[in-house]
């Protein structure tokens, strides 16, 4: 298969020394195996996620994504924009749709972009990394590269919010999307059936501002994974990953639970199953270590 190229938008949390640098590392490992070339959008900026609305009004927020799309159009014509981050993907795709839907907003956005020497056409396909996996490769092609199947590991596929709503993955339902489960099966693992917190919210950015309320949500997400017999949770979103992983000690102290549930990215699962070592699979980025994956990676 010929090399596939994409215009890549990593997002702030995937920068060096940032909270999901481990995600980026495993995505790069995975993409190398799949012969995917990620061309980073030169000089990309933050999309303001979904929490910049206080200081940023509608147009200032929309032009943030408009600048990234314009840079992609200029530097990577003909390549789809791909982001591994749920918020970056949603923000970019939604901003482009909203600008295309409103001529006067689009005109204003272009007036603002001119200040940065840029112009927006707004015809890019904006996609999440899992769409690339599922649509441009497919489960069979992904499965063909498995060298070390994830035998005997039971995994709860936590899809979360923003990879699922409002756009989601084509052909999947909002209430019970199956793609993570299918991916787990493809890699030889066992998905948790009927994981009832699969698309529940972890609190997102409010984990910072409303920690008690958010940790109550996170507790249910982890508890439900344990109820289904999960050894670990897998997610496609950097905010989900961090929120569900790093507050487990605080939740244990508050609710008298004994959670110690690893939360990994799908790209880490894929990298391990494709035969990579712990470092290239970014297992060293786990605050709660995924020991079963470490054992497979060491084999």
């Amino acid at each position: 298969m010929a090399k596939k190229e994409y215009s890549f938008y990593p997002g702030c949390s995937s920068q060096k020394g940032a909270s999901s640098i481990n995600y980026l590392r495993s995505v790069e490992t995975m993409c190398e195996d799949l012969d995917v070339q990620l061309n980073t959008i030169p000089d990309w900026n933050c999309c303001s996620a979904s929490i910049g609305y206080n200081g940023g009004g509608e147009l200032p927020r929309l032009v943030l994504s408009a600048r990234n799309i314009a840079l992609s159009e200029k530097n990577h014509p003909g390549q789809d924009i791909v982001s591994p981050c749920a918020a970056c993907w949603l923000g970019t795709r939604e901003s482009q749709e909203r600008l295309n839907h409103n001529d006067s907003l689009m005109a204003e956005a272009n007036t603002a972009l001119k200040e940065a020497g840029l112009e927006l056409e707004g015809k890019k396909d904006v996609r999440h990394m899992v769409e690339v996996l599922i649509e441009d490769f497919g489960y069979d092609a992904l499965g063909a590269k498995v060298k070390k199947p994830l035998n005997d590991i039971k995994i709860a596929g936590y899809v979360g919010c923003q990879t699922n709503r409002p756009f989601g993955i084509d052909g999947e339902s909002f209430e019970n999307p199956k793609y993570l489960d299918k991916l787990i099966e493809t890699l030889g693992g066992e998905p948790v059936e009927n994981y009832d917190k699969k698309v529940s919210c972890c609190g997102g950015a409010l984990a910072f501002s409303e920690p008690d309320k958010s940790q109550a949500l996170i507790k249910d997400i982890i508890e439900s994974a344990y109820d289904g017999g999960a050894d670990m949770i897998v997610t496609p979103c950097p905010v989900c990953q961090m929120n569900v992983e790093v507050y487990q000690d605080q939740i244990n102290a508050k609710y008298n639970t004994k959670f110690k549930m690893p939360v990994v990215y799908y790209s880490t699962l894929i990298s391990v199953a494709y035969g990579h070592n712990a470092k290239d699979s970014a297992l060293d980025g786990q605050v709660i270590r995924a020991k079963q994956l470490e054992e497979i990676a060491a084999k």
Binding site: N45, G57, E58, L59, P60, L62, V63, L64, R67, E108, A109, T111, A112, L113, K114, E115, A116, G117, L118
Partner: peptide, 13 residues
């Protein structure tokens, strides 16, 4: 350029 763009967007809004 980034900040000039944002400033213009804020003015327009």
């Amino acid at each position: 350029g980034f900040q000039a763009m944002l400033k213009k967007a804020q003015e327009l809004e």
